[in-house]
């Protein structure tokens, strides 16, 4: 896994990441995360740590960075899809909970989603899952990553039209997440 990521680019992205942190007081990195609790596989008893990730601007921003570096974006674009399905819509083949998404990333899925186990740490998978969720879920502007994708090809995600409202109240949304 050679990484000819340009140093300048790296610096830029990191800077943006720092910005993110500065903007949102809650955006502090979380301590290293262990594997999902087995109870998390049970939708009725979500892993309590999940919420710390998807409600944390820093983690979401880290996830976005990884989404580019690990070539997720090559298959899913910036959420709209291409070789892999769209992640910005509200259709999920394998579930939208943090646990489901971490499973998808770790083990892959039969129709061509590669397994990233061994290439990412647990915490990185959680960060990615938090970012993936932010592409389709109703997340507060303060948490959504404000960095323009691909250095301004598209509108910054904060300026883009919010996704069509889903027929759920924030309360339900929260419940369905885990």
């Amino acid at each position: 896994m050679s990484s000819p990521c340009r140093a300048s680019l790296l610096a830029l992205v990191l800077l943006a990441g720092c910005d993110e942190q500065a903007r949102d007081p809650r955006g502090h990195p979380l301590p290293e995360t262990g594997p999902l609790l087995s109870a998390a596989m049970n939708p009725a008893r979500p892993d309590p740590r999940a919420v710390d990730y998807y409600k944390n601007a820093f983690e979401v921003s880290q996830g976005q960075q990884l989404f580019q570096w690990m070539n997720c974006s090559g298959c899913h674009s910036n959420g709209g899809g291409g070789m892999g399905p769209a992640l910005s819509d509200t259709k999920w083949r394998y579930g939208s909970s943090m646990a489901d998404i971490v499973q998808t990333i770790a083990n892959g899925r039969p129709n061509g989603m590669p397994s990233f186990s061994g290439k990412l740490t647990q915490a990185e998978m959680w960060q990615l899952a938090a970012y993936v969720r932010s592409l389709s879920q109703h997340v507060p502007q303060s948490i959504r990553s404000g960095r323009t994708e691909g250095l301004s090809v598209g509108e910054p995600s904060t300026l883009r039209d919010p996704h069509p409202p889903r027929a759920v109240t924030p309360k339900q949304d929260e419940a369905s997440v885990e």
């Binding site: 709209g80 899809g81 769209a86 819509d89 090809v153 509108e155």
Partner: peptide
Amino acid sequence: GGLVSGGFDPRDPTAGLGIF
């Protein structure tokens, strides 16, 4: 045409390597 056959999301201007 994969935009329709794959059910992708054209709101992302970079989707489908930018063609959608």
